[in-house]
Amino acid sequence: MADTTPVFDGHNDALLRLYQSGRPDAEQLFLQGTDRGHIDLARAREGGLAGGLFAIFPPPLSNMKVDGKRPQDVTFPPLGQADALASTIAMAAVLQRLERASDGRFAVCRSAAAIRTAMASDALAAVFHIEGTEAVGPDLDLIDILYAAGLRSLGPVWSRSNIFGHGVPFRFPSTPDIGEGLSEAGKALVRKCNRLGILVDLSHLNEKGFRDVQAISDAPLVASHSNVHAICPQSRNLIEWQMHAIRETGGLAGLNFSVSFLRPDGATNANTDLDILLRHLDAMLEALGEDGVALGSDFDGALVPRAIGDVSGLPNLIMAMREHGYGEELIEKIAWRNWLRVLERTIG
């Protein structure tokens, strides 16, 4: 690992990239190094990535465009359970194969203690996360099976509706007040996650669904990869009361590196200065406190600032924080300590 501040990152889509590559050697490319995507093991070490939430995302059957538009003002149709189940199981298999093939360099972690052990042994600590639970039926039986395979975090919805609730579509400018709250099945899912010790991620949930989780859950509220709506009025970003609710429960929000969730104009432009990330961090620190701010890059799922580029560019953000006046203790909290604290309280 690089001689730099370690980072535990709240969200990446590397498993989706490996799954969609269709390559039989995809896992080996990840472990040996490749110029594809944002994350592989070699660049993770170079950038100081110590671990993170590795997301399984059942993709839309079409590509990420609707009627030729980028997903900046579109609503995706529901995804059928059979299609979602096939891709979810396939990506879970990729995760398991990565661990088996890594010779101890990549570890699927089922507890905060396991994350600490992996970090101490210089293994990349992966927490199994699902972003959008379309594969799960109303009986919730699949949750038990996935939990046994290591699932410790899930977002009930992605930016589309399912039987559990409503995800905010990609819309700019917009508030997150779009659609109804959780269904009864969604409320049962949250309760089951609380019982098992599965973190419930709110980053794609709409405002009414967020309020429902707030009312039901006995765990810290977490938005793994969301920014500040007052700076960038994207429907996926957090409004003031949501950040205050997260703070009241001892939860956290992770800074999303996606330029369209950072920029006040919502533009998809890689030539986005790191100053805008610092502006979001300043606002998050004010609303959430030093213990409630973390990182949730969205690597391999978003266009990130050219100044970061990929996971090997994480030290550039750490240096920018330092030059901005953040002390080393605060930087460590944002970079990894806050995630470990919240995971200790949620997954054990």
Rank of each mutant, 00 (worst) to 15 (best):
F170C: 11
I178K: 03
S174T: 09
D122W: 01
E131S: 15
I216F: 04
G167M: 10
P169H: 00
E240P: 11
F172H: 05
S235H: 11
V228M: 12
I143Q: 07
K192M: 08
V222R: 07
L238P: 02
I216W: 04
L182K: 06
A230P: 09
A126C: 03
A223S: 04
L151M: 06
S121I: 01
A215P: 04
E207T: 05
D212S: 14
A135S: 14
N206H: 05
P138H: 05
P220C: 09
I178G: 00
Q214E: 15
P138C: 02
R160V: 01
A148R: 15
S161Y: 03
H129W: 04
E134R: 01
H129G: 03
L196P: 04
I163Y: 00
M119G: 13
G179F: 14
I130L: 12
A113N: 10
S183T: 15
C232L: 11
A120V: 00
F128V: 02
G179Y: 04
Q214Y: 03
L140W: 07
N162D: 03
Y147Q: 13
I239D: 01
E131A: 13
V168E: 00
I198S: 10
G150S: 08
H204A: 09
F170V: 05
H166Q: 14
A114V: 09
A120W: 09
G181M: 13
A148S: 14
H229T: 08
I198Q: 10
F172K: 08
R110K: 14
A188L: 04
R195W: 00
V157P: 06
G165Y: 05
S203C: 13
V136K: 04
A123D: 01
V222M: 10
I231D: 10
N194K: 08
G186L: 08
S183I: 07
A126P: 03
D122K: 11
I163R: 15
S161A: 13
S153N: 07
L146K: 00
G132Y: 05
A188I: 10
H225L: 08
I198G: 00
P138D: 02
T133R: 04
D144P: 04
C232P: 10
K208P: 05
R110M: 02
G155C: 09
P138N: 12
S217R: 13
S183R: 07
F164H: 02
G179D: 02
A125V: 08
